[in-house]
Design a binder for these strands. Sequence first.
DNA 1: ATATATAGTTGTATTATACAACTATATAAT
DNA 2: ATTATATAGTTGTATAATACAACTATATAT
Lengths: 143, 143
Amino acid sequence: MEKRNPVERIEYELTTFIRRAVYLDNSEKKIGNLERSAYLLLRQLDEFGPARVKELAESFKLDISTVSRQAAALEAKELIIRFSDPADGRVSLFTVTKLGKQKLKADKKMRLKRFESITGEWTADEKESFGELLIRLNEAFFD
Amino acid sequence: MEKRNPVERIEYELTTFIRRAVYLDNSEKKIGNLERSAYLLLRQLDEFGPARVKELAESFKLDISTVSRQAAALEAKELIIRFSDPADGRVSLFTVTKLGKQKLKADKKMRLKRFESITGEWTADEKESFGELLIRLNEAFFD
DNA sequence: ATATATAGTTGTATTATACAACTATATAAT
DNA sequence: ATTATATAGTTGTATAATACAACTATATAT
């Protein structure tokens, strides 16, 4: 796949990556045991603390109804718990349970292992730089 | 988002990227006018030449029935045409039409423009290196 | 006190997908 | 050669993730 210029290469490789990553997520070969949506939701709550459905929906760019169902599913599995906002009776807040933290940790470990192995041959500089550029990419890609 | 090490950062940023890229693809804000699946299919045929349904399915890691429908849809829009393999009557081969090439070109142009703007501030070295690392990532990520 | 706005849930429709059943053709086995 | 098996593709069906719409409960503004 001879790409004429770096940007073309980046576009090509990123779209390919997305196509395949989505496949992997839906397949048996997916990393870890949590659904991608569950992983992201747990991670978000774990890193940023308790949040309401609306907040989560905004940060994932999903409809509030979709996140409401995702959260209900995680709640049923006792990976998160719901509590109400004393200041606003409409709001449902969620936080990660002990069990949720365990599952998240285990899952993250598997994912990191995968990434460690993928980048095993990379130099420290390459890893560093790739991570930094990804951050910039994410910032620039999404207003 | 202080990530303790580069690999963790890479994992975090890539999962975030996928989540958002999938959203963008499904939204009005998507780049270009073609569905992501249509873009990938046209691009594949354009770059690698005529292919049968099975080949395409394998390369996208999708079920043959899924690709059969995608191809039928593009055929109906006259972006690709079907022809038969003289050596095997079961096979449907597809190739991109003039119209398909036009659409693909236009779409690619828009996508590249987007990527040009995103990476506008990057140095040539950064673009180069990022592209290279993405290639390696893709190779390593998917057996 | 009443009207309007917001947070969340649940119902419904759409879409992308995989798997299963089937048809047509090709290849292998006897 | 005939028959059995394998393969390519299509079409039917089920499932899952999603958005949007209708609704309920609560909050805020008039």
